[in-house]
């Protein structure tokens, strides 16, 4: 559905007299399949929005190519516009107009007739549970309601692909869960959904496939499960008293299923193992044998943050 090769964009920004060049996107290759929720995961400033704005024809790439829903981004941007929907990061509704007016206007900007636009607006308001507020000014909406109007705007012309730039940023947990349902519903309707996010749990739970982006480059791509599997094995956290830790380390070091062993400063061990589920009973047996009492035992499966950490050397939570 989307295929990009070597997509690049730099910005020149002026600070005083000096001009600085920011390489916002440095050669992005992507293949997004029809009907999937594809996620772009990365910290702020990674270049997610810039990539999306290039794909949505809002800014011209400095280099590279892209085909979007069968239309060539460079040769036929007008056709790309007809086939995609785009919901910008910072909102797209006007305070003084109502959801219904915005939807009708937006549909008509796509060349849809007035009567048809009104029908579509009514249907979209219904689908997004907005009918109750449809004729109130947008400035009176809650964050979640407003975001739903914006998504409805993005799909009013029934595009093949919709780009959602950080659709859940700034929403409370309940509205977020609600928004996830809406996004899944779009996929169920046969649409291809391309979202950006800097939330690990969102990428993990919502997306069929993700590309992890950092500093203008895609550093990893795959299904969340595949990506996590690449980070070999699980981590078993063994909670111990400080006094018992050295002996426990001695006992477990050299066990065939322990790939690597680290002691924790406050007492306890971190064991890197292939398969946590089979390692834990053996650890328990061994420590019991040695007469060591343990306070806790925890299985830590690799998260997307661990993937990000191994690929970039930084934690996404910190950046």
């Amino acid at each position: 559905m989307i295929e990009t090769r070597g997509l690049r964009k730099s910005f020149r920004s002026r600070a005083g007299r000096e001009t600085k060049t920011v390489d916002a996107v440095r050669g992005v290759d992507l293949d997004v399949a029809k009907g999937e929720i594809f996620g772009f995961l990365g910290p702020n400033g990674a270049g997610k929005t810039t990539t999306l704005r290039m794909l949505a024809t809002l800014i011209e790439p400095d280099g590279g190519e892209a085909t979007i829903a069968g239309a060539d981004l460079r040769k036929d941007p007008a056709e790309v516009r007809r086939r995609i929907g785009y919901v910008p990061q910072g909102g797209s509704t006007w305070d003084e107009s109502t959801a219904r007016e915005e939807l009708v206007l937006h549909a008509r900007m796509y060349g849809i007739s007035k009567a048809d636009a009104q029908r579509r607006a009514a249907r979209a308001l219904d689908a997004f549970q907005l009918t109750e507020y449809a004729d109130r000014k947008c400035k009176t909406y809650s964050g979640g309601q407003r975001r739903r109007v914006e998504i409805a705007l993005g799909i009013i012309h029934e595009p093949k692909i919709v780009f959602l730039d950080e659709p859940t940023t700034g929403l409370d947990p309940q509205s977020r869960a609600h928004m996830w349902d809406e996004i899944r519903r779009l996929r169920a309707d046969g649409m291809t959904v391309f979202i950006t996010t800097h939330y690990l749990d969102e990428a993990d739970a919502l997306c069929d496939r993700i590309a992890i982006m950092d500093n203008g480059e895609v550093v990893a791509e795959g299904t969340p499960t595949e990506l996590k599997r690449e980070i070999s094995g699980d981590v078993v956290l063994v909670g111990l008293d400080l006094a018992a830790t050295p002996q426990a380390a001695q006992t477990l070091d050299g066990e065939p299923y322990v790939n690597k062993l680290e002691t924790v400063d406050e007492g306890g061990l971190r064991l890197y193992v292939d398969e946590g589920a089979t390692a834990i009973p053996q650890v328990l047996r061994r420590l019991d044998h040695a007469g060591l009492e343990l306070r806790s035992i925890e299985l830590h499966r690799p998260s997307l943050d661990d993937v990000f950490l191994t690929k970039t050397g930084r934690s996404l939570r910190e950046s």
């Binding site: 809002l58 007008a78 006007w94 900007m109 796509y110 060349g111 012309h157």
Partner: peptide, 16 residues
């Protein structure tokens, strides 16, 4: 003000 609200960006992704 319209630019800030994203209204212009939204218009520019349509074929208008």
């Amino acid at each position: 003000a319209e630019l800030r609200a994203g209204v212009i960006e939204r218009s520019r992704v349509t074929p208008i």
